[in-house]
Design a protein around this nucleic acid. Structure first.
Lengths: 337, 337
DNA sequence: ATGAAAGCGCTAACAC
DNA sequence: GTGTTAGCGCTTTCAT
């Protein structure tokens, strides 16, 4: 990258200090110098080095984002929303796709630390000792988005997964369902996976509905796992079929839907189905999917704003977990029985 | 971030050079020093600064990726595949979501240049003079992925959009269709948008089928625009309906599908439909979507590999445009008539 | 209002 | 094998 600040200074016949001042838009610079410097910058096609600037200022205006899976609608919506806000605040994003690989996550955490990002947003679901200990000893702000922080002194922005799953189950019970199957995410996912399952369990028990273990299966939030687990439920021989399936993600719900449809059953006449996330795909399938709405864009924006506050040391959020409101989006895939 | 290399050196009682050597895994270091340094690193929880390293080495091991829209399945698949390869080669990714905003793209291009990324991958569809002139005068390697390079001395990795659209149209003609509607992407998208349209036109004319202007609409590749344009075609009063709709993206195809379905028409009995991209959504909808397959993961991987070669100065690719093979994925949404 | 010079944390000659 | 030291390109006191 050709020109350095020194070249600009020489060309303009001024000191590097003056060039730096122009670059940083300081006041108290004479018009004469301003013009000469701008002229020289143009002539040399000069682009200042953020590397050098970051080294000196000990600030990179960069934040690292750890995402489980770019190709997941919900993740990419959050990411896109984080990006939008980051752009407003002048941050650039280093993104890391960990693909549920803890080794990769650790490697990335180290990498962004070495790059001296100003802060980190983590959306991972699983974790392990190494990662926990990294986070614990890291000195930069770290915020968890859409998952609960595993550590007491780190913050998270998310919905109340337990309450949301419980509300969803209540809703299905209110529709007259008693045989309610649950297609869970990963149980190793200690934050949303377990919370959503627990919400389902408690809502059933509150309504006095006994749990049918045949109606509970776990996957990995992806479509294919929804299809496979649904198949297991349908082929379980003897027992009765559920009248509704509550999936812990829209992707799993769609997988289950297609399994049901491919079996020649109708939705919602034979089996109702409810998703979780209310991602774009919920409106793309037919029948349209009733789903628990997570305010994805607000989650992304709020995550970035809180991280920004942490970085600027504007004091801590009010509480360790910031809950954004969830709500049920009623569509065509659940019927009253 | 507490400790610097100097602190480690003092703690270990050696010179900074020795620490640097250990850090960079050089050989010819005595076991004694190695142990002492590693010990000190651990005790101080030292993390080397990539900023300082980059400044010195004039290399950041970072590449910038300009993406039109994270939330698009096809984009996110490419991105995820680029990420995967980048990770193998030891690059970190700065990603930029431009949301079809040219101002934002220019801002981002400047930003990644200032961050001294080792190279840039661009996936944008539209462009303008300012961006062109930036790219022209930029001194780092820039590679276009999934779009044709607008500049003669820059490379691209993509499929042959013209040929693919022409093949798709041929396929539909082979199925007996003559009333073939076309749901195009953006005509301002000078690379794929125009090429796909031209492929469609030429295939029709080669088969001696006159173009029906009522059957051609343009959108923006997104679902909603597919739905809206399809509605226009369906409500066009007087004329006959098309027997098949060829959409320039799967998302538009799904939008069109839902419009058709919501109209009470059947797919493919009443109208067949064909998509483009073969993204995840093609298999998520019912009937499953016949689509022109783009080898997304290979496109991403190849893009990164060629950029890497450019960065390492391993000579230029064989040709300006590297075409990867496309193919038709036959599914249930198109019938022979 | 402008400039000289120190130093951010690291690497790589070069010397021993 | 190991250490000394000069920068990488910038910002920022501190003088003037």
């Amino acid at each position: 990258m050709g020109a350095r600040i020194k070249d600009v200074a020489e060309r303009a016949g001024v000191s590097v200090t003056s060039v730096s001042r122009v670059l940083n838009g300081e006041k108290y610079i004479s018009q004469r110098i301003l013009d000469k410097v701008n002229q020289a910058i143009k002539e040399l096609n000069y682009s200042p080095s953020q590397i050098a600037r970051s080294l000196k200022k000990q600030k990179t205006n960069t934040i690292g984002v750890i995402v489980p899976d770019f190709t997941n609608y919900f993740c990419s919506t959050i990411l896109s929303s984080i990006e939008e806000s980051a752009s407003e605040y002048g941050y650039n994003l280093i993104v890391c796709n960990i693909a549920e690989n803890l080794d990769k996550e650790l490697k990335y955490l180290q990498a962004v630390q070495e790059m001296r990002v100003d802060g980190i947003i983590i959306m991972h679901q699983k974790t392990d000792e190494r990662i926990l200990s990294f986070i614990e000893s890291a000195s930069m702000p770290i915020l968890f988005s859409c998952v609960r922080s595993p550590l007491p002194d780190r913050f998270s922005v998310l919905i109340n997964d337990y309450q949301a799953a419980s509300d969803a189950t209540d809703y299905l019970i209110g529709l007259g369902h008693r045989r309610i199957a649950f297609l869970g995410g990963d149980l190793e996912d200690v934050t949303s996976g377990q919370s959503r399952y627990q919400g389902y369990l408690d809502a059933l028990s509150k309504a006095g509905i006994p749990l049918n273990p045949d109606f509970v299966k776990f996957g990995n939030y992806k479509q294919e796992s929804g299809r496979i687990r649904m198949k297991e439920i349908l082929e379980q021989g003897a027992g009765e079929r559920p009248t509704v399936v509550f999936a812990a993600s829209d992707d799993m719900a769609v997988g289950a839907m297609n399994c049901i449809l491919d079996y020649g059953l109708r939705i919602p006449e034979d089996i109702s189905i409810m998703g979780f996330d209310d991602s774009l795909i919920a409106k793309a399938v037919r029948p349209m999917l009733t789903s628990m709405h997570q305010p994805a864009r607000e989650l992304g924006r709020t995550s970035l704003e809180y991280l920004h506050n942490l970085i600027e040391d504007r004091g801590q959020p009010c509480c360790k977990e910031i809950y954004l409101p969830h709500r049920i989006m009623e569509r065509a895939s659940c019927r009253r029985i």
